[in-house]
């Protein structure tokens, strides 16, 4: 009996604080980049670049970090921001990318966006 990886990965996040936001049984992405971050995290594990459990632990750590500095009902809480931080840390730890090039590319994208305005 085979369980699809996507199914397994989503199941492992349910029932605790690391569960993703959802609406009527479907994943809820408020912004485009949330879906992109979600999909990348799953895809990299599916392709064997890291274990899904490693991502889950990284996400839990990222959420804990926020909670140690904020109240639980702080309006600045943002699930996918924690997800994004966990994802890039793991991508760096797994040596898929290095931090300097990520910083550089981020700056390029931000500047390019600003130029368009």
């Amino acid at each position: 009996m085979q369980l699809k990886f996507e199914h397994f990965a989503a199941t492992s996040l349910m029932g605790s604080e690391e569960s993703p936001p959802r609406n009527n049984g479907e994943l809820k992405f408020a912004r485009d980049w949330e879906g992109l971050a979600f999909g990348m995290a799953l895809a990299l594990a599916k392709k064997g670049h890291y274990e899904w459990e490693d991502f889950r632990q990284e996400l839990i750590a990222s959420i804990d970090e926020w909670e140690s500095k904020h109240d639980r009902d702080d309006p600045s809480w943002d699930y996918y921001q924690r997800w994004q931080i966990a994802l890039e840390r793991l991508a760096i730890e797994s040596e898929l990318i290095d931090e300097a090039e990520l910083e550089k590319r981020t700056a390029e994208i931000i500047n390019c966006k600003h130029d368009e305005k």
Binding site: W33, L36, L42, L44, K47, I97, T106
Partner: peptide, 27 residues
Amino acid sequence: SAARVRALESLLIEKGIISGETVDKVL
């Protein structure tokens, strides 16, 4: 945040780690 995620995607695609369709397939 949006830029960080897009930067990560573009680097991963550039390095051939994922393709442009990988994420769409998962979603």
